[in-house]
Amino acid sequence: MPRKILIYTLLVCLAVLMGTPLAWMVLSSVKPNSDLFSYPPVWLPSRITLEHYQHAFRAAPFARYFANSTLISTATVIVNCLFCSLAGYAFAKYEFRGRDLLFYALISTMMIPFHVILIPVFIIAKRFPLTGGNNIFGAGGIGLLDSYPGLMLIHLMNAFGVFLMRQFFFSIPDDLLDSARIDGASEFGIYWKIVMPLAKPALGTLAIFTFTGVWDDFLWPLVIITSEDMRTVQLGLQVFQSQYSIQWGPLMAATFAVTLPLILVFVMGQRHFVEGIATSGMKN
């Protein structure tokens, strides 16, 4: 019993430490301006107001931004799960020439900051053939700029995903695959019908990693999006920062509003999420 009390005390203390900044955000979002910056700080609002939320949703079409972010994040997750699992499976379960070299080359791409490849990637996106008015040589139009595929482009595959899936597939016994081969299953059939169903938890983890990454991205959407109705949530939040000042109340309100769905996803999915990583062979 005393052990339980000790654990709860620790949990509560840590939760207070960890939760305070965000509690402040939520409280700030419903405080009138007069309460926001008083010193010493006032914790509870003198009256609860929704004016910041009204202001925020008037300033920018957050519903639309939210739909954009959700759409591209979800689509990216699907592509990622497919490509990364295919590659991860090959790297884990096949012997082929150049395997390790390819794998490490892939992993090392993570170590270059995005800023220095931004311009080349931007030009490739702009010159992408047969899209956005471009001809087969990638000239004439804007390519993938200002489009959903463009937004997804740089996230379609990530080396980390391949790494994660490879780790997971190590834990699948070779015997299982061999017996399927003896039964006459094709290599792709084995991957699709035997391996993939087993990989669900790991795919779930990859999905959450990818989703968060795309959702949080700021610089790439900033440079390729030009139409207002293509903006993502992160770009939308910029509306509240101008050169010299921050619109504190609306920023807090909008941030809370766009974070809430992610929180709900985590609350609902946290069990599976954790199981996903647990089985994905992080144990090597």
Partner: peptide, 25 residues
């Protein structure tokens, strides 16, 4: 050819959106 086929999408992507930009840089 099979393993190469499996890693093809990832390799293509990496070549075009990682290796080439990194090479340029």
């Amino acid at each position: 050819a099979i393993p190469y086929l499996f890693i093809l999408p990832v390799i293509l992507f990496t070549v075009f959106f990682k290796f080439i930009p990194i090479g340029v840089s």
